[in-house]
């Protein structure tokens, strides 16, 4: 099953571009939901066998990243009734190009890293780096709080892919703990979004940069 890793990671990388280039929030959320499901599948593929922990871990990842968090986000955009990211700080074409550049640099950079022998030539490290970069990009260049949550999710997905390198060494509890952290963070962000929208009647984080006297 090892040869399935690279195709899955290619799909994950393409979904990064979809999340960067789409202005419709629904499209962006669908993209990261699909990415979450793919990462869940990746866990089983990377373990290379159907152990009970691998399957449990995959199920947890798919339920949380692929179903639960996206539903939460869909609920949030319904609640505050916004459809699209209108004015990102960096435009969509520019952020797509930056994402492409980031991916190219990630591939170049990971070639110079001293990686364990069995991971040389695999896409895991470049995919993890470029997904993390994409997360940073979304997190910093979008102004709507919900898109920033999405950016955080993509960032976490990048770290999750990094974890695939340590799949034999990392205990199950640690991985579950990471997922729990993610869940709590999204939960807190949801509350913050709620507060922003109640206070300012929009969810643009631009409002947060000016102090109230």
């Amino acid at each position: 099953m090892y040869q399935l890793i690279d195709p899955i990671l290619v799909a994950v990388l393409l979904l990064n571009f979809a999340a960067l280039g789409a202005s419709q929030l629904r499209t962006v959320i669908h993209a990261i939901a699909l990415q979450g499901v793919l990462l869940g599948v990746l866990v089983v593929v990377a373990h290379n066998e159907f152990t009970i922990w691998a399957v449990l871990m995959a199920c947890a990842a798919i339920t949380l990243k692929g179903i639960f968090i996206p539903r939460l986000l869909f609920h949030a955009i319904r609640e505050v009734s916004i459809r699209r990211e209108v004015e990102p700080i960096i435009g969509f074409i520019a952020s797509l190009l930056l994402g492409g550049l980031g991916t190219a640099l990630a591939v170049l950079f990971s070639n110079t890293l001293p990686i364990a022998q069995e991971h040389v030539g695999s896409l895991i490290v470049p995919a993890a780096l470029s997904t993390t970069l994409t997360g940073f990009l979304i997190l910093t260049t979008r102004v709507k709080a919900i898109t920033q949550v999405v950016g955080y999710l993509v960032l976490e997905n990048g770290i999750f892919i990094f974890g695939m390198l340590l799949v034999e060494a990392m205990p199950f509890l640690v991985e579950i703990g990471v997922l729990l952290d993610l869940f709590v963070a999204i939960f807190v962000m949801g509350i913050i979004i709620n507060r922003i929208s109640r206070e300012f009647s929009t969810v643009s984080t631009r409002n947060l940069s000016s102090l109230k006297e």
């Binding site: 393409l14 492409g100 070639n111």
Partner: peptide, 21 residues
């Protein structure tokens, strides 16, 4: 339309990256 064309460029460029890796 330009967004999609830039995306098409990125797809091909990504293809090259995968090949040269």
């Amino acid at each position: 339309v330009p967004t999609f064309l830039v995306a098409a460029c990125l797809l091909s460029a990504f293809g090259i990256i995968l090949l040269l890796r």
